[in-house]
Every structure is written in C-alpha cells, then in structure tokens.
Amino acid sequence: MLDFSRQSGRRTARVAAALAVATLALSACGSNQSTTHSSATPTPSASASASMSASPSVSPSASATPTKAAKVITSLDAITVKGDAGKQPTVTAAWPIAIAKTQSKVLKAGSGRQVASGSTLSINYVGIDARTGKTFDSSFSRGQAATFSLSQVIAGFQKGLVGHKVGDRVLVMMPGSDGYDSSGGNAQAGILKGDSLIFVVDILDVAYTEASGTTVTPAAGLPKVTMKDGVPQLTIGKATKPSTLVVQPLIKGSGAKVTATDTLLVKYRSWAWSTGKVIDEGYTSAGIQGQLSSTISAWKKGLVGQTVGSRVLLIAPPSEAYPDGDPSASISKGETLVYVIDILMATKTS
C-alpha cells in the first residue's frame, strides 16, 4: 500500500508522479503528459492506464453507426436530462446530433467553491456519444467518484467545467475537436473521429490549492512555522522535543472532517528534529494523493477529525513514525519528525 509520507525530499518529481491524482477515463488521448497510478489511488475505470491514453469503458452496442447524418444543434435545449442529482441521469435527444463549439448548461445550481483552470475535482459523471446516443463511460455505474486535475483531461471537459461551482449538475457538449479527434477517435469506446460528446457532471468538490480558513494561534513551546514564497519554513529554536504525538492546527479550514478511510489530497513538508533539515518535500507540487490508511501512525491519528482546508503541524516521535528509521529517506533510528500538512481535499474510498 502507498505510504505518501515517507518519500525522500530529493525525489520530489518521482514522488509527485507516483502519487498523482487519478486520471479521468476521458484523458486526452495522444497527450504527452503521463502519470503513474499507485495502488492507493482510486482508478476511475477498469480501462484507465498510466500512460493517460485511457479509454472510457464501453458496451459492445456503442459501436453501432447511425445511417443518417448528425443534426448540428446550436442550443443544449435540444437535449433532455432526467433524474435527480446524485444519481445517474437519463439523457435523450434526436440522435445523431453534433455541435460546433463546446457549450455547458447548469441543470441544478450549487453554491460551493468555483472551478478554475487546472483545478483538481471530485465528480460523478456519465458520458454519451452524440452520434449513437450510447453511454460510453459512467462513474455512477462504478459506484466511485472520479478525482482528477482539469489539466489532465480532454479540452472540452476543461472548457465545460471551468467557472461552475461545487454542487452544480452540469450538462456539457463538445465537438470532436475538443474530444478525441486528435487521436482519430477512440475505437475501444466506439467513438469515431468527428463524434460530438455529451457529459452530465455532478461537481462534488474542488480541491483547495493551499490551506484556507481561520488562523489558529499555536500552543507555546512549539517550533515556529512561517511561510516563504508559499512554502512552509520551520524554526525549532528552543522548542522542547516531545515524547508523544503533537497535533497543532495552524489554519482551521471550513471543509468536511477527515475520516480514517478517506483518500486525501495534500501538500506537505517534513523535517528531522535533530538537524532541522527538510527530509521530504511534498509541498511545491499541485498536491499528492493517497489513502490515509496507508500512512504512518502519526498521520492516521493526527489528521482524522481535522477539516479540509486546514494546515496542521504534526510532531511525530519515533514510535508514531519510523522507530527503526528509514535509510532510503535519510531518517535515522529514533528520529522525531515534524510535518506541516495542508489538507486540500478528502474523498470517500469505496
């Protein structure tokens, strides 16, 4: 299982790749980007691959080709969506249809944080080929929400979701040029070059980019945490090394409380108490994801009950971290570790 709190600070790029957020099944085919999925990262579909050339899951009937030409629509009013938010919708239209430019429409308005370019999202969605009217992918049917960065998915998904809010149910339709045309379609999903695509998306959450909330004055006698160029700095100074786990919120976020079974998206940095040197650099990335249950005891005990959006100082004695040390991460036997962790998102693990 993934342990996303023990990687060496000298291997930041590899750590970020190994723990990158799960890629949506509709990742941009032919993209030069790549990512590696760890065993602790939720996979949005059985067809997802580490190369980001993942193809949406599909039923055999989705490859059927209509005999008439697609009607080009100019308004999403031509599409009917039925069903309650939170459940898989039924989508109907006079198939086949197509669209010249990506459009989106709010079917149910939310009031949460707004989606920005490059945001990391947690969503439920269904994807339909507008040529055939067939569903080619659905997180609803898998029973697991998808978590991904908008920088990792096809252009139409980015265009269709930016500006919308947590709680929105959004109808998105895109031309093939914003879908899979650059890869000649997606044969496994029955999507041909030129096919327009339709998605109904429930936006469940948008990750914070850094801690945000109410500043908390730490208890006296703890190491001092400051921020420089957006990165935590630690001064141990005359602080007394504790013998038990210390959990000190520095910023109290307003999000949901973390549970023991959550998958977390975090930024973090850690230091060795004995030297004050950084031993693990996970803060300068866009965020690192993994299951809380796979981490060291200090994280399991210290982060459960904290709220999303929080920044938390953890001081972990050897018994709560690595009693025997970890030479691969430059952690000596008996070392006390200090962590500063920003909790950006928490999603339920099915």
Rank of each mutant, 00 (worst) to 15 (best):
Q7P: 09
S8E: 07
R10A: 12
T12R: 09
R14K: 14
A16Y: 14
A18W: 11
V21C: 09
V21H: 05
T23N: 13
S27M: 07
Q33N: 12
Q33V: 11
Q33H: 08
S34G: 13
T41Y: 03
S47P: 05
S53M: 07
P60V: 09
K68Q: 15
A70N: 04
V72E: 15
I73N: 11
I73K: 01
A78S: 15
D84E: 08
K87R: 09
V91E: 05
T102R: 04
S104P: 10
R113H: 12
A116H: 06
T135A: 12
F140R: 02
F148S: 04
L150A: 01
L150I: 04
S151I: 04
H164W: 08
G179Y: 00
N186H: 03
G190Q: 01
G190P: 07
I198H: 05
V201A: 08
D202S: 10
I203M: 04
Y208E: 02
K228R: 14
G230V: 08
A239T: 05
A239R: 12
T240G: 15
K241F: 06
V258A: 03
T261H: 07
V278A: 13
E281Q: 10
S293L: 12
V308W: 00
R311M: 01
L313Q: 09
L313W: 00
L313V: 04
S319D: 15
I331F: 07
S332K: 14
V338M: 11
V338T: 06
V340R: 00
V340M: 01
